[in-house]
Amino acid sequence: MSSGREDGGRPGADPVITADEVRHIAHLARLELTDREIEWFRVRLGAILEYVAKLNEIDIENVEPTSHVILMENVLRDDVVRPSLSRDEAIGSAPSSRNGFVAAPRIIETDDSGVV
């Protein structure tokens, strides 16, 4: 299996991942990318996606996935209240805060009905 090629796909063949897909993923991940960056990532993501396709060689039928390597279960804590941070500690390092709240650019234009 080839690996490490920089074009991310055989000439003339469908690219492993398209620029539009990269754009969509960048949006999902909230990353603003220029067209040049889109292309840069497309090539690199294409290369790694092509490489990981080697996993398709393996028969995984009847194999359970591993999401945790430890076999512990029922790790629970008692319902006991512990001291919280002071407000200063909690929001003191926010880039913007006012009157005890963290301030963020507003997302939703409601009619004016307040909390959504």
Binding site: I17, E21, V22, I25, A26, H27, L28, A29, R30, L31, E32, L33, W40, F41, R44, L45, I48, L49, A104, P105, I107
Partner: peptide, 25 residues
């Protein structure tokens, strides 16, 4: 939306961005 994506674009290096994108994908 602009704050999010510009902050994350400017705040992360390319290798981190590459991994975040692969992971989201």
């Amino acid at each position: 939306a602009g704050m999010y994506s510009r902050t994350r674009h400017d705040g992360f290096g390319n290798e981190v961005k590459r991994r975040i994108m692969l992971g989201a994908y």
